[in-house]
Every structure is written in C-alpha cells, then in structure tokens.
C-alpha cells in the first residue's frame, strides 16, 4: 500500500492530474446511467402506447411480445442491471423507433452535431475573443459601445427566431446560402470515416464535396454561435480589462515591448485561462441545445434524434443520447482543465 502511494506521488503532476480526472469521470458516467435510467422510469407515459398503433396496443399478445422484446417485462432493477451489462460490451440496446442498435444511430447522428457545434465553437472563439479584446482596448470609446450592443443582441436574440430569419434572408431572398441539410439534394456523402462530412471529404481529397459541406455548415453554425459569441465577447472584455490593469502588464509596457506583444502575450494569456472555462461550458450547451437549429436547417443531428426519441418514449435511445452527451461534457471539462493547466504554470507545477 505504501509502495503504491509512493509510486503514485512519484508520477509527474500532470499525469496524476489526468489519471485522477479519468477516474472521477468514470464514476460520473456510472452515476449518469443511473440518473437517466431512473428518469425514464418516472416519466409518465407508456412506451407501448407511444410505439404501437391503437389496434396493436389493444392486442394483448402483441403488447406482451413488444414488452418481452425490449425487456420491459423484467423487474426494474434487473432492467438496469441488464442495461449496464450490455453497456460494458458497447451495446446500448435497440431503438424501438428505428429498429437499429442505438450505437449505429448515434454514430450517424452524433458526428453531424459535433461537426456543427465545433464549427460554431470555432466561429464563437475567433469572433468573441477578437471583439472582446477590441472592446477592452477601446474601453468606453465608440468601438466598445458598438461591440457592447452586438454582444447584448447576441445573448438576447432567440435562436429559433434567428435561425428562421437568417434562413429566409440568405436562402429565399438573397440566394447566397445553400438549402437545408448537410449536402445538396442527391449529393453523395464522402467515404465514411468520422461521419463529419467536411473532415471526411478532406481526408478523401474530395475538394468539391468539402466546399459543399462547408457551405452548408456556415449558416447553421453561425446561428448556433451567436449566443456564444455574445457571451464570450462580454467575458473576454471583462477578463481583459482585469488583466490590462495588472502590474505585470504595466511592467511589460515599461520594458518597451510593442503594444501588440503586451496585449496578446501579457494581457490575453491570463484572460484566456478564464475564457477557456466559459468556452467549455458553452460547447456543452451547444451540443445539447442544437435541436432548434437542427430542425430549421434539417440537420440530421443528435438533437433531432433525441427529440424524436423523447416523443416516442424510445427509452434505449434516450439513455444512449444522455450517456453520450454526458461523456462528451466530461471530456470537454477534462480538456478545459488540461488547457487551463497548460496556460497557467501555477496549476501545472503545483
């Protein structure tokens, strides 16, 4: 035991940090399976009537077969144990709606959402941080005022409304944006590797497909990013004002460094540590909040899948989605912690 403890403390700080986070993450996942399972049990509504037609639901034989097929005839603890056992083998059960394994469904829908959310996140980070830095430098002067209005609008506009309006303007009126979906109608998807079409197209060297996939993702990603642009802008501005007033920034100026270096190296770095935390939370929110944008732009993502599963009380699918979203949340938070440690040596070196 003491040997174990000793060798544990002999590990580099960063490695211990990662191992600890992975352990906690695994525990969290287990907790989430329990919570999502419990929730599906207490939700009022009967999967039988949600999935079978009226006539089928009135035939006791069909109902019994349905229940047996999906394990609904077992006692609840056994249903949970069975679920966990299958989970360990990578089996999330079968969707009652699509009659396919939930893992198959997820591997199709999840990449579409991750692709959309990542594109939105990149937009939000680049635009949000730039605007925030600009606003902080021009504090209380006109660029700051304008940016303040933009970011306030960003966090105030309802996403579904913005999605409809931008689609109407850019597709119907101006004709700049391509139509809905991930590709043009009848377009052939690139060879399936990650199921993110832009990346798969790049990997396969299909430039035309890449261009089409990219043009399809720009508008929904921008709409999805608007709220986060607003919040990252406001957060960056505040964090920059804070760090610009620090002694070490004044010291950097006194060293005669060019303003660009002072702002980007000395002032932005501590601000970034704070921004990363906000960005991590925003990414999680985007993943689970894409359903409105996905609906308007007919984006076949996990938001739509979760929505349809919820309507059909498709328990396996709902639990699959919850679990996957939770795992992504945990991974994103771990990534945030790691980036944080990378930015700030006080955390890295303890």
């Amino acid at each position: 035991m003491t040997y174990l403890r000793k060798s544990w403390y002999a590990l580099p700080n960063l490695l211990r940090f990662v191992v600890r986070r992975l352990f906690v993450g695994a525990l969290l996942c287990l907790g989430i399976t329990f919570v999502s399972f419990a929730l599906t049990q207490v939700v009022p509504g009967d999967p039988v009537s949600a999935n079978l037609g009226d006539r089928a639901a009135s035939d006791p034989e069909i109902v019994a077969a349905f229940r047996a097929r999906y394990g609904l005839d077992q006692p609840i603890p056994q249903q949970y144990a069975l679920y966990l056992e299958r989970l360990v083998h990578g089996d999330l059960g079968e969707s009652q709606q699509t009659h396919r394994p939930v893992t198959t469904d997820l591997s199709q829908y999840l990449p579409a959402t991750i692709e959309l959310a990542s594109a939105a996140m990149i937009l939000a980070l680049v635009i949000g941080i730039s605007l925030g830095v600009l606003a902080a430098i021009a504090r209380d002067r006109w660029p700051d005022q304008i940016i303040r209005v933009i970011s306030l609008a960003g966090v105030s506009v309802p996403t579904f409304w913005l999605a409809l309006v931008t689609f109407y303007v850019f597709f119907f009126k101006l004709g700049i944006a391509p139509g809905v979906g991930r590709l043009n109608p009848g377009g052939k998807a690139p060879p399936s590797i990650t199921n993110m079409f832009t990346i798969d197209a790049l990997l396969a060297g299909q430039w035309a497909t890449f261009g089409i996939a990219l043009s399809h993702i720009v508008l929904p990603a921008a709409v999805l990013a608007i709220y986060t642009i607003g919040s990252i802008t406001r957060f960056t501005r505040a964090a920059m004002l804070e760090s610009l007033s620090q002694d070490y920034v004044r010291a950097a100026r006194a060293k005669g460094l060019p303003t660009r270096t002072v702002i980007l190296r000395h002032a932005l770095r501590p601000a970034l540590a704070a921004i990363v935390t906000v960005a991590g939370m925003a990414f999680g929110r985007m993943l689970s909040g894409t359903v409105l944008v996905e609906s308007v732009f007919s984006w076949p993502g996990i938001g739509q899948y979760a929505y349809k599963s919820a309507l059909a009380l498709d328990l396996r699918a709902i639990m699959g989605v919850s679990l996957v979203v939770a795992v992504i949340y945990i991974l994103v938070n771990m990534a945030v912690d790691l980036i944080y440690a990378f930015i700030d040596p006080r955390i890295r070196l303890g």
Binding site: Q246, D247, Y248, A254, R269, I343, P345, R346
Partner: peptide
Amino acid sequence: AMVFQDPMTALHPML
C-alpha cells in the same frame, strides 16, 4: 527601465 513596488504582481505569473 523601471522596477515596481510589488514583485509578486510585477512579474508575469504565467511566463
């Protein structure tokens, strides 16, 4: 060149 009052805050903590 200039040296400031508080060396705890005048040196950049992350560089």
